[in-house]
C-alpha cells in the first residue's frame, strides 16, 4: 500500500511502471470506490500537481490540451469556447463547479464511461490522444482508446498526457447537447455532438455526429453522404441515423426505447446548433439551454 505525489511526469511514469494507479481529481475513483464499483487501488500516485500537463497550447495544426486541464479551464478558455465549442459544451455540463474544478479532461476520457460528456465532442472534432510511458510516446485517434465501458487500450504503465485537436477550418464549428433530468450533478441520459463545416452556399461540407450513452463506447459516424445537402435535411438524416445505429441499454436513468427516441432528438439539435455556430452565430456555452433542454431558472 502506498501513496506518492508525483512532482514530474517521469516520477509519475516510474510509479505507474511499479504498478500504481494515477489519481487526478479523484471524482470517479473515490466515488466509485465508495459505491463498491471498484475498490480504491492500494497503490496510488497523485498526478494533480503536474503543471506541465495543465496547459492549453495553440499549435499550427490546432490545439493541444494537457491531460490535467480541468473542465472549468476548458469551459472558460477563450479559444476552446469559441472554436472548439462542443468540448466546452461538454465540460460545462459536467457535475457542479466543484466537480469541474478538480475533474480533468484526461480523467474523463481514461475513465471511459459511455456517458462521458467530453467523448462525443472529441470524436467529432477528430481528436487524437497521446499516451506516454517509460518506453516512449504514442498517439492514436481517440476512438481507438475506448474498448468498452470503463476499458481502454492503454497498456499498463501508460499515462494520458495530452489530447490534440485539429483546426476546425473555415465556416466550421461544433456543439454537444445532452438530455438531462436536472441542471447539475447529472449524468447524460443520452447525448450527441456534431461537427459541421458549411460550404459557401450554406450546404453541408462536412458532418460528423457522435453519440453518448447509447452504446458500450462513444458511437461516431462520418456522414459524408450528406455533403452538399441543406442543413435541415442533414439534421433530419442524422436523427434517423442516430436512432438506427444506437444500441442502448435500459437502466435506472432511461429505457432502451426512450434512449433510442431521444438520441435522435439530441442528434438533430446538435447538428442544427453546430451549423448555426459554423455560420458565425455566437451561442452561449453550454448550448443545452439555447436548444431548449432544461427549464429556465
Amino acid at each position: 500500500m502506498s501513496f506518492t505525489i508525483a512532482r514530474t511526469v517521469d516520477e509519475a511514469l516510474a510509479a505507474l511502471t511499479a504498478g500504481a494507479t494515477p489519481i487526478a481529481g479523484g471524482t470517479d475513483l473515490v466515488v466509485g470506490a465508495r459505491h463498491g464499483k471498484a475498490a480504491l487501488p492500494a497503490n496510488l500516485v497523485a498526478i494533480d500537481r503536474l503543471d506541465e500537463l495543465k496547459a492549453v497550447v495553440e499549435t499550427k495544426e490546432g490545439v493541444s490540451i494537457g491531460a490535467l486541464v480541468s473542465h472549468h479551464a476548458i469551459e472558460t478558455h477563450p479559444l476552446l469556447a469559441s472554436a472548439y465549442c462542443a468540448l466546452a459544451d461538454g465540460s460545462a455540463l459536467v457535475g457542479s463547479p466543484a466537480t469541474r474544478h478538480v475533474g480533468t479532461l484526461g480523467g474523463n476520457i481514461m475513465n471511459a464511461s459511455p456517458a462521458m460528456d467530453t467523448g462525443a465532442p472529441l470524436t467529432v472534432m477528430g481528436a487524437e490522444v497521446e499516451l506516454r510511458s517509460t518506453r516512449g510516446n504514442r498517439r492514436m485517434p481517440i476512438e481507438q482508446l475506448w474498448t468498452g465501458p470503463g476499458r481502454t487500450s492503454a497498456e499498463p504503465g501508460e499515462l494520458c498526457v495530452a489530447i490534440h485537436l485539429p483546426k476546425p477550418g473555415p465556416k466550421a464549428n461544433s456543439a454537444y447537447v445532452r438530455l438531462e433530468y436536472r441542471r447539475a450533478m447529472e449524468i447524460a441520459v443520452v447525448g450527441a455532438a456534431a461537427f459541421v463545416a458549411l460550404a459557401d452556399d450554406g450546404t453541408i461540407a462536412a458532418l460528423r455526429v457522435g453519440l453518448t450513452a447509447v452504446a458500450p463506447t462513444i458511437l461516431t459516424c462520418n456522414l459524408v453522404e450528406q455533403i452538399g445537402r441543406p442543413v435541415a435535411a442533414a439534421a433530419e438524416h442524422a436523427a434517423q441515423m442516430a436512432m438506427e445505429q444506437c444500441t442502448p441499454i435500459s437502466d435506472v436513468r432511461a429505457s432502451v426505447g426512450y434512449r433510442r427516441h431521444t438520441v435522435g432528438v439530441m442528434a438533430r439539435r446538435a447538428v442544427e446548433a453546430a451549423a448555426r455556430r459554423a455560420a458565425g452565430e455566437k451561442i452561449a456555452i453550454p448550448v443545452n439551454r439555447a436548444v431548449g433542454i432544461g427549464a429556465a431558472s
Binding site: V31, L44, S96, A98
Partner: peptide, 12 residues
C-alpha cells in the same frame, strides 16, 4: 477552489 470533501482523499 470548491471541492466536495466527502469525495476527496485527505492525503491528496
Amino acid at each position: 477552489q470548491p471541492v466536495n470533501s466527502c469525495s476527496y482523499l485527505a492525503v491528496q
